[in-house]
């Protein structure tokens, strides 16, 4: 059901799609078993539509991509990280509403 505009991020494509991206990238760390992650999913879909072409919006499944999960010591989900120029510029742990996420994104575009 995820929007086509949301990019699926993996251990393999993370370097290219996030670290070397020309635009800011929002990464939603999630897993199937995480209830709050499911609550966040529609918000992420909407952000992908709202920021289409300006910000890359991606999701990374922590169960399937342990290397990235461990690189950023993600021990609680959902976690949203915003990257710019390969660096983490924002971090949100737990559920956040759309307006709060938009404010964070808007600081970096």
């Amino acid at each position: 059901m995820a929007s086509e505009k949301v990019q699926t991020l993996t251990d393999t494509n993370f370097e290219q799609s996030v670290i070397k991206a020309n635009q800011p990238v929002l990464v939603d760390f999630w897993a199937e078993w995480c209830g709050p992650c499911r609550r966040l999913a529609p918000t992420i879909d909407e952000l992908a539509t709202d920021y289409d072409g300006r910000v890359v919006i991606g999701k990374l499944n922590v169960d399937e991509n342990p290397a990235i999960q461990s690189r950023y010591s993600i021990m609680g989900i959902p976690t949203v990280l915003i990257f710019k120029g390969g660096e983490i510029v924002e971090q949100v742990v737990g559920l956040a509403d759309k307006s709060a996420l938009k404010k964070l994104i808007d600081k970096h575009i």
């Binding site: 897993a31 995480c34 209830g35 709050p36 021990m75 609680g76 989900i77 742990v93």
Partner: peptide, 15 residues
């Protein structure tokens, strides 16, 4: 928080 401190076992226990 989110890096080993949690208030939700069912959310984060798997880690």
């Amino acid at each position: 928080i989110g890096h080993g401190v949690s208030t939700c076992a069912t959310c984060d226990g798997f880690f």
